[in-house]
């Protein structure tokens, strides 16, 4: 049940990204280009997404079990530390260079886009490097 709901959620997420225009790197970089010809679309994507998700997370905070019967797991970390800030800055540089963040890159992979294939392979390599560097040591 948990996986079935996740499949539907993934589909919705992908359709939302396509409809929003965010699977197009030119539109994303158009938003990040404040000093140029600025395309505010991404701000409306965020507004729509947060507007729809905020009530759900407000309810989720008061629950410990999900509809599927499994535990409802909200992030527990609260500290604002160097990995959070430096990691996010690093992500932002890569995002600005190619106009892809992880979600749109994966949806673009599904459209058969060749640049998305290259980007996603490099992204997974980056994540694997992190997993290796932070591996549990005996």
């Amino acid at each position: 049940m948990q996986a079935l709901i996740a499949l539907v959620a993934g589909l919705l997420f992908g359709l939302g990204l396509l409809l929003s225009g965010m699977a197009n790197p030119t539109k994303v970089v158009g938003f990040l280009d404040l000093a140029g010809n600025w395309d505010p679309s991404l701000a409306l994507v965020m507004a729509g997404a947060i507007g729809a998700a905020l009530p759900a997370f407000t309810i989720a905070r008061k629950r410990s079990t999900a509809w599927a019967g499994c535990a409802l797991a909200l992030p527990s970390a609260t500290q604002i530390d160097a990995p959070l800030v430096l990691g996010s800055l690093t992500f932002g540089v890569g995002w600005g260079l190619a106009g892809y963040c992880p979600g749109p890159a994966l949806v673009s992979l599904g459209t058969g886009s060749a640049p998305a294939v290259v980007f996603v392979l490099a992204m997974i390599a980056g994540m694997a490097i992190h997993a290796w560097l932070t591996r549990p040591r005996a």
């Binding site: 540089v93 995002w95 190619a98 992880p102 490099a122 390599a125 994540m127 490097i129």
Partner: peptide
């Protein structure tokens, strides 16, 4: 860009 996004987001 992909490497930066992969490492940075993690």
């Amino acid at each position: 860009a992909g490497l930066l996004v992969g490492i940075g987001t993690r």
